[in-house]
């Protein structure tokens, strides 16, 4: 990897300011030695049905109980991914942000297919690693979510100089499949995703 980092001095968000459903103390407890993400994969969430605990970006609140997976949970799955060039999480670098995660319920009653759209914000507009970060987010979600979810990862509009080109690559199933058979790239992705496990 390039020894000169694209952005040597990124803005870092204090962990206590990151969006979370839980109290700060609980977050600290996890940091102290909990398995973190695994907790979130346990399906028995009583609070998912709590009408008073809807995530900020939810507009179709009726569908949320049916979905059983909401934006906060998607956020929790990807916020812990490590940045490929900083020893920091994508959440703390504000590369992934809760308001930029959108879940679309099935388009018809006959369909079970939901769509997750994640818009990522590179730390600087010419970040050469935007594609790798996007790929990490897509791979993480495809591995963690049930197959009824279609995962779309895009660069947030106006935050990257070549966002259209990066979006096209990230949306290309065949390219993503081939990339996952590339040993070098998989090594990078494994390091990024290691902090999720």
């Amino acid at each position: 990897m390039d020894p000169d980092k694209d952005n040597a001095n990124p803005t870092i968000i204090n962990p206590s300011d990151l969006p979370s459903r839980r109290g700060i103390s609980e977050v600290k407890k996890r940091d102290d030695g909990g398995t973190g993400l695994f907790d979130h994969l346990v399906p028995a969430y009583s609070y998912l049905n709590d009408p008073f605990d809807q995530p900020l970006s939810s507009s179709d609140s009726e569908d949320e109980t049916v979905e059983a997976i909401d934006e906060q949970e998607i956020y929790d799955l990807i916020a812990t991914i490590s940045d490929p060039e900083h020893p920091l999480s994508l959440g703390s670098l504000a590369v992934v942000n809760l308001p930029d995660i959108h879940i679309q319920p099935p388009t018809s009653s006959r369909s079970n297919i939901s769509t997750v759209l994640v818009e990522i914000t590179p730390t600087i507009t010419h970040c050469s690693l935007a594609t790798v970060i996007g790929l990490g987010v897509r791979v993480r979600l495809e591995q963690a979510l049930p197959p009824r979810f279609r995962v779309d990862v895009r660069i947030k509009k106006g935050t990257h100089s070549t966002d259209e080109a990066v979006n096209k690559q990230l949306g290309d199933k065949e390219r993503v499949a081939a990339a996952l058979e590339n040993g070098t790239l998989m090594g990078v992705l494994r390091r990024m995703l290691a902090t999720c496990k």
Partner: peptide, 9 residues
């Protein structure tokens, strides 16, 4: 036909 291969592409 919708969902020809269950939820898969």
């Amino acid at each position: 036909v919708e969902g020809a291969h269950d939820v898969f592409e």
